[in-house]
Design a protein around this nucleic acid. Structure first.
Length: 529
RNA sequence: GGGCCGUUAGCUCAGCUGGUAGAGCAGCAGACUCUUAAUCUGCGGGUCAAAGGUUCGAUUCCUUUACGGCUCACCA
């Protein structure tokens, strides 16, 4: 705990980092942990935990601390329910009660269902700047690496029973043992522990008829139940920080009992923690709950949001606040907010008061970056404008980049990424009103009355003569003068022109739209009349 | 029943290591012969849920109450 030269940040990640240092004291390194059971697609709500830890890890490292960031795949948990959206339900049912690490991957060719879910996320995380050390619990348990931890639980089984009973409605049975066993004959946890020799020997019998005594130091069969497993691992890895969802965080919840077990049984001070809230999803056509099988994953979010913006979403919201990830028109708003934050970052104010506000925004911007903060401001293009350009070019990103012209090489990557996201959004989520496709000469003419035909012809002349030499405003005036001359209602005129250009009655603001389409293309369409 | 969180302008929310409140949207006024929530300019006296307490001073800390949400008490 040294005096900072930098002003103290009020960002939650920094505050948490400070707290960790304060409460855990000087250490050679701090261990921050996150984890999940890969019993289904890892969804965006789960991602909140990972990114929250990552942000704290980063804050700690920026304070000069060494940090070990571990991510635990709890793939030795039981397969307790077949997800509704999975194929081969009958096959999967035969694996119930077995550890998920032995359940086959019916969707792909990974070695197991658990591995498939794990790999899906692991290949995605680096994209958003998350790079933890993965720990596979099945591997640990099967290698008997937790023999001592399990033995400790057995020695203290009465203490643990008392701790758990404090928050249970029905007390644990007298014969209860703080371990569960996967039968070595059938792989299922349909077992009853029948004895413990006070040392490493555990006996059990299984519903399948199998009975045996195993040695904790050599068996792969014995596992700790969640509420004990968690504190045991805190001890094992010397965990200093681990947040948890609100379901764990109430009195009587698993964090609560784990805290007691950690202190009293494993003699380890429970980690610093905080509670994070759930994520809602907005604008994806209603059915997005996990019960219906459809789940929003990080992949889905990355198709619409640039990696920095995904981070921004989480870095800019306090973990204990619920928020929605939107796929509707809000997407545009989020992009605009991010761009504003970015402009703020590259425009540091002078006055002290303004500086205070700036610092918060700047910190959010820093934490939103996947890697280092860019030295020059990224190419800013209004998301709406980009959407229009992309539609002009039918999604041809190369064409858009070329059209823009003034993109520096170091800016091109992000721009292309943004274009890709914008195009995905247009295709999948943009409201119909927002979408358009430019007509081409091959589409032929649309029906127009004489007056509008005349107007379109006049427009063609103005475009041909003046579009390049005038700016948008001047050119606009010219167009309006023409309308006036023909005594044409502007609304009527616009409908006609949009019909000619995009076969719709509405479109992007006309004058700038004409400029983004470009003189030649505009003329090719107008000259049909 | 226990716990956690919230209650700030019409709406969505910032602000909370204490010094009498801010943004976006909406609204109102004006500008623009223009539309994909159009853009620009101007306009914010709201008992910061209520009552107590600590303090020179509280939206920000403590206690109590009300309302709302979530969660635990089976497993992970």
């Amino acid at each position: 705990m040294s005096d900072n030269k930098k002003p103290r940040s009020t960002h939650w990640a920094d505050i948490t980092a400070d707290k960790i240092i304060r409460e855990r004291g000087a250490k050679e390194h701090f261990t921050c942990a996150s984890g999940i059971t890969p019993s289904g697609t890892v969804h965006i709500g789960n991602f909140r935990e990972i990114i929250s830890v990552e942000l704290v890890v980063r804050a700690l490292r920026e304070k000069g601390e060494k940090v070990r960031f571990i991510y635990s795949w709890d793939d030795y948990d039981v397969f307790r329910k077949v997800p509704k959206n999975m194929p081969q339900q009958e096959l999967l049912e035969t694996y119930l009660r077995k550890p998920i690490v032995v359940v086959p991957d019916v969707l792909g060719d990974q070695e197991s269902y658990a591995a498939a879910n794990e790999k899906d996320l692991e290949k995605l995380l680096p994209i958003v700047g998350v790079d933890p050390e993965y720990i596979y619990q099945a591997k640990r348990y099967r290698n008997s690496e937790y023999a001592e931890g399990i033995k400790t639980a057995l020695i203290h089984k009465d203490d643990i029973r008392r701790q758990l009973d404090e928050s249970r409605t029905t007390p644990l049975a007298a014969a209860w043992m703080p371990v569960s066993v996967f039968c070595t004959a059938c792989d299922r946890d349909t077992t009853t522990v029948t004895g413990w020799d006070g040392d490493y020997g555990v006996s059990y019998s299984c519903e399948c008829g199998h009975e045996e005594t195993v040695d904790l130091r050599t068996t792969h069969a014995v596992k700790l139940p969640w509420r004990i497993d968690w504190p045991m691992r805190w001890k094992q890895e010397d965990v200093d920080f681990e947040p948890a969802g609100k379901d764990h965080h109430s009195e009587g919840g698993s964090f609560d009992t784990a805290r007691k077990t950690s202190k009293e049984v494993y003699n380890h001070e429970p980690p610093v923690t905080f509670q994070y809230d759930f994520i809602r999803v907005k604008g994806r056509g209603g059915k997005i709950s996990s019960s219906s099988g459809e789940v929003i994953s990080l992949t889905d979010v990355l198709e619409i949001y640039q990696p920095e913006i995904v981070r921004y979403l989480f870095a800019g919201t306090r973990p204990n606040a619920e928020f929605a990830i939107s796929f509707d028109l809000d997407v545009l708003k989020i992009y605009e907010d991010y761009d504003k934050c970015e402009r703020t970052f590259f425009n540091k104010p002078e006055t002290e008061k303004a500086l205070k506000k700036w610092e918060k925004q700047a910190r959010i911007y820093e934490l939103s970056q996947v890697g280092a903060v860019p030295e020059t401001m990224p190419y800013q293009i209004q998301i709406r404008h980009l959407c229009n350009l992309l539609q002009n070019y039918s999604g041809d990103i190369d064409g858009v980049v070329e059209y823009l012209g003034d993109v520096k090489p170091e800016q091109e990557g992000r721009l292309r990424q943004r274009a890709l996201c914008a195009w995905n959004w247009i295709k999948d989520f943009a409201p119909e009103d927002f979408k358009f496709a430019l007509r081409s000469e091959a589409d032929g003419k649309v029906e127009l009355d004489d007056k509008n035909t005349e107007a379109v012809r006049r427009l063609a002349i103005i475009v041909k003569e003046d579009m390049e030499s005038m700016d948008e405003k001047e050119f606009g005036t010219k167009v309006y003068d023409m309308m006036k001359e023909l005594e044409l209602e502007s609304a009527e005129f616009f409908i006609a022109v949009y019909q000619v250009l995009v076969s719709k009655e509405k479109g992007p603001r006309l004058i700038s739209f004409l400029y983004t389409i470009g003189k030649d293309k505009v003329l090719s369409l107008l000259n049909l009349y």
